[in-house]
Amino acid sequence: MTVHAADAAPQDAASGTSKWSRAWQSHAPGYLFLLPWFIGFFGLTIGPIISSFYLSFTDFDLLTSPDWVGFANYERMFTNDRTFATSMRVTFTFVLFSVPLKLAFALAIAILLNRGMKGLPLYRAVFYLPSLLGASVAIAILWRQIFAGDGLVNQFLSIFGIVGPSWISNPNYSLWTLIVLSVWQFGSPMIIFLAGLRQIPQDMYEAASLDGASKWRQFWKITLPLLTPVVFFNAIIQTIEAFKSFTPAFIISNGTGSPINSTLFYTLYLYNEAFSYFRMGYASALAWFLLLLIACFTAFSFLTSKYWVHYDD
């Protein structure tokens, strides 16, 4: 404060500017502290978003300058691109199964743990570890092995005399191995659920059980309604994460989305269009469509939230 006052004082001999300089004094530190963020926000976020919107209407191969093609990219997406449709189907299947399953596991384990179980910190740590490690290449490699034809799962099944398929290379099952991998990482939503459960006042349960409400009824009438804000939050975060998921599908399918595009996540398709075929214009259109999808999903969730999310006030 004092430093800036000293800087500014000699310049505003005229009293008219002193109002400006006082305003500058009180606002400048805020902008200065935000300076790195501003540069990043405009240079690496807003600028590129606008630029990729422009690119989505062009033909661009990185080497020559972009050619304006109007809506051709979007037209191709919706009328003339089977692979796009496939990748949408794969991604939506992944999101629709992995997110609810993951949240269900997270909530179930959190409720079990929340009953004052002995060894809570240990259990919590064990369940959290996979979600910390799960996104790494090493785990995707491990998964490839577990679900391979001669992998762990089939060795286990063979104990019971079942001959399992090669899960990874069978297009009927390959996406499911990725869903299982995602559900395995239920640790972080579980921790958020645990924090939410701890906020529910204990005397509500005591009152309910005095009134003879069963545990099952207490769950539906107390726990779940009071937990809906946390469920809502977790559902949004996990859905967006699922839409953006990339590494496991890339590693497990060798970057191709194989077998026969059954694991071709939207992000994987976008990556291949951009960096294998250098169709940057088309990839930008794909990216913008993903942005719209996520924005619509988020807006829809917030708009409908007032009908099912319970808020105190």
Partner: peptide
Amino acid sequence: MLPGQVTLIPQYV
């Protein structure tokens, strides 16, 4: 909330 894909290509350029 922003998916990184939407800034990816201009950033790369």
